[in-house]
Design a binder for these strands. Sequence first.
DNA 1: CACAGTACCTGCCCAAAGGTGAGTACATGA
DNA 2: TCATGTACTCACCTTTGGGCAGGTACTGTG
Lengths: 134, 134
Amino acid sequence: MTEVVPPAVDEHGQLVFDVFARACTSRETLEHITGRWGILALAALMDGTFRFNALRRKVDGVSEKMLAQTLHALERDGFVLRDAQATIPPRVDYSLTPLGRAMAEKLLDLIETLEGRMPEVLAARVAVDAAKAK
Amino acid sequence: MTEVVPPAVDEHGQLVFDVFARACTSRETLEHITGRWGILALAALMDGTFRFNALRRKVDGVSEKMLAQTLHALERDGFVLRDAQATIPPRVDYSLTPLGRAMAEKLLDLIETLEGRMPEVLAARVAVDAAKAK
DNA sequence: CACAGTACCTGCCCAAAGGTGAGTACATGA
DNA sequence: TCATGTACTCACCTTTGGGCAGGTACTGTG
């Protein structure tokens, strides 16, 4: 019955993070980047630097509130760089940090292989639905 | 003003999936595998075959209801294989399909790099919080 | 001169996510 | 014989996610 509580340390004094542990901060961070809008925002930023409304048009369906909220979380975790120029009208540019780019690459890889394999997913659905119906 | 609606087809008659499009089924499927519990279930199943309650102990914090729900979704999408033996007491084994393994590999890669870079995340947080405080 | 656009924030509210506890049908161990 | 474990489902309720409308402070365009 070993309870792994967040500030866990291994035999070398290194911090140990485990997303499978309920209270580990890494799980919270994982949810920021794999959340409904987080993953799409990060993937979109792989195409370059975007202004708020441009990003919003790219991520189809996201509301202003949600985009602002997820960008704040991603900025705080060090994945996204926010560059606000105090001009009028305001201009804010969002881009990936090196850390953010490392994560976004993996996410984009995931997205692209999923898109490529969607026919298999749709086939599985009809197969499973048919099996359950009878 | 091109509206990409789900059953989109490219110039070769191939189905085109785009997670950035609001109504594309690929976005729904992406949410199944990157959802709060989906990603953890898939990653856990990379360690082999598990029974329901074993999986539940592995994915710390998930409720019976949620685990059952996410496993059903993953099974329907063809990521997880459910093998129910009609014995008493019931025994149900969950494992990854080849498609599920392909996705879970990417997810595990993501998780492991995130866990490794969590110190950077925590450092970013204190830096951002300090900048906002002043 | 009025209206659209920029980059948000705030409050209001509804719907969806998700937790809790009970029930099931049987077998095995104490 | 009584409790425990298995793999769930269902009903109920709370919490959270997230959409919508409105406000802001100013500028460039028709």
